[in-house]
Amino acid sequence: MRVMIVGQKWLGAALLRQCIAEGHQVLAVAAPPSVGEEYDRLYATAQQLGVPARAVRGRLVAQDVPPGCDVLLAAHAHCFIDAAARARARHGALGYHPSLLPRHRGRDAIRWAVHMREAVTGGTLYRMDDGADTGPIVSQDWCHVRPGDTPAALWRRDLAPLGLRLFSEALERLARGQELAGLAQDEDLASWEPAFSGARLADTSG
C-alpha cells in the first residue's frame, strides 16, 4: 500500500517504522513544524529513513497529499485533514483514537477514562470525516484500566500498541482488496470532553 502518515511523537514514528517493515510504501509524512532546532519525532524519523517530510500546522490540504496515495493514516494527528485532502487518497483517511468511540471524543480521552475511574477502555480505528472523532468505526479493541494506572502507563502498555495493531490489520485488509466502509457511530452513546485541566497529553505519548 502507498500511504501518507499524518501525526507526531512516538505513535507517528512507530507507525512509520511499522509500515516500512511491513512492506508498505510511505510516500510522505506530515508532522508539526520544528520548535527552535528541535524536530518532532515523526519528522526526525522520516528524515533519518529518507522519507519526504512536510511541516504542517493546523490543516492538511489537498496539495500536501502526494499523487498515487492509497490511504492517509492519522497517528496522533492534531491537524485537520480537510475533505479535499482525504479525497486525494484512494481509500480516504483512517485515524486512531485511544477510546471506545463514540465515548470520550476529544484530545484527552485517556486522562478522562482514568479520571472517571473506568474499568475498561480501548482504541478505535475510524474513517475520518469533517467532525472531531465522529467518523464511521472500522475496528475496535478494549483493554482493562488497572488499579493505579496513570494515563502514561495505560498509553504505553496498551493503547499505543493497540493503535499500531489496528493500523496494521486495516492495511492488510486493504491490500487484500477489502473495503473498510465502517459502522456509523451511535450518537446516543457519544461523549465529548474538553482538554483536561492542567494536563498535557504530550506527557503521556512521548
Results as ranks from 00 to 15, higher is better:
residue 58 G to I: 11
residue 27 L to N: 03
residue 54 R to E: 14
residue 38 E to N: 10
residue 25 Q to N: 11
residue 85 A to K: 04
residue 42 L to P: 05
residue 38 E to R: 15
residue 127 R to F: 07
residue 187 E to S: 13
residue 92 G to A: 14
residue 102 P to T: 08
residue 30 A to W: 01
residue 168 S to W: 12
residue 116 M to H: 15
residue 118 E to C: 04
residue 149 D to Y: 00
residue 204 T to G: 05
residue 165 R to G: 09
residue 111 R to K: 13
residue 80 F to C: 06
residue 126 Y to W: 08
residue 194 P to Q: 08
residue 94 L to K: 06
residue 50 G to P: 05
residue 63 Q to Y: 11
residue 117 R to E: 06
residue 58 G to R: 11
residue 36 G to I: 02
residue 100 L to H: 05
residue 32 P to L: 00
residue 52 P to F: 10
residue 97 H to M: 08
residue 128 M to K: 08
residue 138 V to C: 04
residue 114 V to D: 10
residue 139 S to W: 03
residue 204 T to F: 07
residue 102 P to I: 03
residue 197 S to A: 14
residue 161 P to G: 01
residue 34 S to D: 13
residue 96 Y to W: 13
residue 148 G to T: 03
residue 74 A to E: 03
residue 167 F to W: 05
residue 105 R to P: 06
residue 98 P to D: 04
residue 196 F to L: 11
residue 44 A to H: 06
residue 83 A to E: 13
residue 69 C to I: 02
residue 189 L to C: 12
residue 133 D to C: 15
residue 183 L to I: 15
residue 119 A to G: 12
residue 12 G to E: 02
residue 154 L to Y: 00
residue 157 R to Y: 11
residue 146 R to N: 00
residue 104 H to Q: 12
residue 85 A to Q: 05
residue 28 A to Y: 08
residue 51 V to A: 00
residue 132 A to F: 06
residue 46 A to C: 05
residue 5 I to W: 00
residue 144 H to D: 14
residue 120 V to Q: 02
residue 175 A to I: 10
residue 34 S to M: 03
residue 49 L to G: 10
residue 155 W to S: 12
residue 203 D to W: 06
residue 110 I to A: 01
residue 128 M to Q: 07
residue 39 Y to A: 04
residue 31 A to G: 09
residue 27 L to A: 12
residue 158 D to R: 02
residue 103 R to G: 07
residue 190 A to D: 08
residue 27 L to H: 12
residue 104 H to M: 03
residue 7 G to K: 02
residue 148 G to L: 06
residue 21 A to D: 10
residue 17 R to H: 14
residue 126 Y to L: 14
residue 8 Q to F: 01
residue 133 D to Q: 12
residue 129 D to T: 11
residue 128 M to G: 06
residue 173 R to M: 15
residue 135 G to S: 13
